[in-house]
Amino acid sequence: MREISLHIMDIVENSINADATLIEIEIKENINDNLLTVKIKDNGKGIPKDMLQSITDPFVTSRTTRKVGLGLSLFEATCRACNGFLKVSSEVSKGTEVVAVMQHDHIDRPPMGRIEETIVSCLLNPKIDFVYTHNINGKLFSIDTREIKKF
């Protein structure tokens, strides 16, 4: 993927397929700590324990069209190439959390890219609520679709 925002879109798509009704996307960029952290948390159906151990293996997937699943594998490869890591924690019927950490100034770190396009395409799912927070060096932007739907 050329942009981190595309990775995010890909992981969010997993959450949508897991029947999530609430998806939280949190991005933290801190130049002082030199870290870029992306957290995607959903309340979908979760991943069974035995599958969770090998979830970033490209040959592990829950899809039925094909035996290959590259979304998390690619994201993990990007994180590792940038001195970081990817962590997936999940509990069946509670939800899943994906945390990706990268060295902010690493030469191989892809740009954040058009994150707004990713968010806009998320909003195409009217039945799913999204919370998006983006923190850049302590400056915060956030949008919560539950707040918007109140009006």
Binding site: L6, M9, D10, E13, G71, L74, R114, E117, L124
Partner: peptide, 19 residues
């Protein structure tokens, strides 16, 4: 189509252009 393959191939600008 918006799976890993679609996104990597450039589905996002396509979706937004359609919208």
């Amino acid at each position: 189509g918006m799976a890993t393959c679609g996104i990597a191939a450039g589905a996002r600008p396509v979706l937004l252009a359609i919208m």
